[in-house]
Design a protein around this nucleic acid. Structure first.
Lengths: 329, 329
DNA sequence: ACAGGTACTGCAAAGGATTGCAGTGCGCAT
DNA sequence: ATGCGCACTGCAATCCTTTGCAGTACCTGT
């Protein structure tokens, strides 16, 4: 039904080869012919069949994106970024949501990898071994995680934590608490390390209250331990956790920031709508998606380049109403 | 590099045709041959090249999903539903985000339509004419909207509004306000109609305070007019708007639900985290995505069936803390 | 013993685009 | 006038799979 290259060729009075060349290597064809072809293309509304092209070039023009949970605004934003950048390069994006299921992740990646030129793995939960295996026979870019020999884009978690701690210390806080995310999360580990360093530099105390799900519920669950820790300020794995924490604190009648200051990470849209509006380390999310696509595209063009395939993005502390001066003891 | 059907054929000592048949029409091939082929497939890790198959069958095994804004939790949920259901049918999903841009929508759809078997348009902003044109040469399923001759899945907006109004009337409210969404939105129109009927049935007043963006900001902008309207309860286009409204009301020192009750629509995750937790009409979002895929798959199997290709989903009023008895005048 | 089935299996074409190689035609230099 | 080179164009093979048709071998019934 749709026009093929032969239809265009017939209409323009040339061979299919010429049409192909007129479109993809215009300098190789005579200017007069080129305009005839262009006219025929226009008239017929011809668009090359991607499957046929893919057969011969080995490239599909598609990439895959795997995220743990699309309903998490953080990943929704990254997805937007990926998608917008890919579109500019005429590349379509398959999106797959693993529902935070590690076992599903591996299978999904396998299935997807056959029909794309490359994969962007956003905050993969899989182990390093699985990741390496995947990267063996597929072009992979990691977001929010590093792994030996695989390009990727991450945030400078250490620096983000340093900003948060400096802010709290300046407000007079001396006893901080840290609510970690999933144990297997690369981000939670690095944020933990960054915190250690930051509190050491400032000579303040830090109590780690354990690992919780990266969700509202996780924050609710963490609240009581945070209060029990005696800290006057708490930093959480992400904003969702911070907002859950806020809710539980409110229910217990604990005032924020009067009794306790709260800092999140991510700056999702919800954070400025929280009450009190959340102080948080803003992570450029769409940016990460954009860069991931660029890394992948570069990798596709030159599969051997192993240098300079790592990107780091910086967070920015956004001070809102959930942090204030430390309560005098 | 990856194994082809010829490799499998050679290893199994049969012709490619037989391999193809052993895989897709097993009853046509001898049991003994079948196991030999299966073994070869297993050993080589063979997976049919989708592009080559697509070339001959005319089917890609892919579908496209177009949403206005992935960062809106409503659409993120629908996307999750689409994605999960499609996976079960071994179908991959292209996701495209139009950023609420009507003109981008048409172009995007055109580009996408060439490489998928069908398209799911979620809350399309395009006009009916454009929609019909698209549906001419592409298989399309609509979500959150109806159009002549195009299958789709929608919510029973009238009934949802009826539930909300009944709830408020039972609490003693007699003067309601309605904050509409985008003028071109099919949903806002139908919710408006449902409201008219409901208030007429109950013999209460309704003031429409106009149309606002389907966002937090839209809600903030609407708040003052709602207050000025003298209503004791307000129903908003969606939860995002309701939450924005809540924020502005709080800033003005207006108590919810003491002075004013607020009802939203959607029941996004954020709504139960709002303060006060939002009373809202819960819409089954992932369900809509799931059904849209099923509708599309059915359409692909039988492109001529025009009957029974409409689905309607029902909302459920979730009563939380943002609604209470009407203030005595 | 032979005709007619039955049950498999293989051949070859088709699907649309790309690309190495082989022309074709023209201009220019000698 | 002839030869050479250049610029452009076309032929045909190729990518991988599916499928209509034809072929083979064996079996059944008479």
């Amino acid at each position: 039904m749709p026009a093929t290259i032969r239809d265009v060729a017939r209409l323009a009075g040339v061979s299919p080869s010429t049409v192909s060349r007129a479109l993809s290597m215009p300098e190789m064809v005579n200017a007069a012919t080129r305009v005839r072809v262009a006219a025929a293309v226009e008239q017929l509304g011809y668009q090359p069949n991607r499957a046929a092209r893919g057969l011969i070039t080995g490239r599909t023009g598609n990439i895959g994106l795997v995220v743990p949970d699309l309903a998490n605004p953080f990943f929704a934003s990254v997805t937007k970024g990926v998608q917008a950048r890919a579109r500019r390069s005429d590349t379509a994006v398959f999106v797959a949501d693993t529902d935070e299921d590690v076992t599903a992740e591996v299978g999904l990646v396998r299935a997807l990898s056959k029909q794309v030129d490359g994969l962007i793995l956003c905050s993969p939960r899989s182990g390093d071994a699985d990741l390496s295996a995947i990267a063996q026979d597929t072009n992979v870019v990691l977001v929010n995680r590093t792994a030996e020999g695989i390009p990727g884009i991450t945030y400078d978690n250490e620096e983000g934590m340093r900003q948060a701690v400096a802010h709290l210390v300046a407000l007079g806080h001396r006893r901080l608490a840290w609510v970690g995310g999933p144990v297997t999360s690369w981000s939670t580990q690095h944020r933990g390390i960054g915190l250690e360093n930051a509190v050491a530099d400032h000579g303040v105390e830090l109590s780690r209250v354990g690992h919780f799900g990266p969700t509202y519920e996780g924050g609710m669950a963490a609240a009581d331990q945070v209060v029990a820790s005696g800290a006057t300020a708490v930093i959480t794995y992400n904003d969702l956790v911070a907002i859950g924490l806020l809710a539980r604190l409110h229910a217990r009648g604990i005032s924020v920031p009067g009794d306790l200051s709260v800092v999140g990470v991510d700056d999702i849209a919800m954070s400025r709508m929280a009450r009190p509006a959340l102080t948080t380390v803003r992570l450029p999310k769409q940016e990460a998606g954009r860069i991931a696509v660029e890394l992948l595209l570069a990798l596709l063009d030159d599969p051997d380049s192993t240098v300079d395939t790592r990107g780091t993005l910086h967070g920015e502390l956004i001070v809102r109403d959930s942090t204030g001066p430390a309560a005098s003891p």
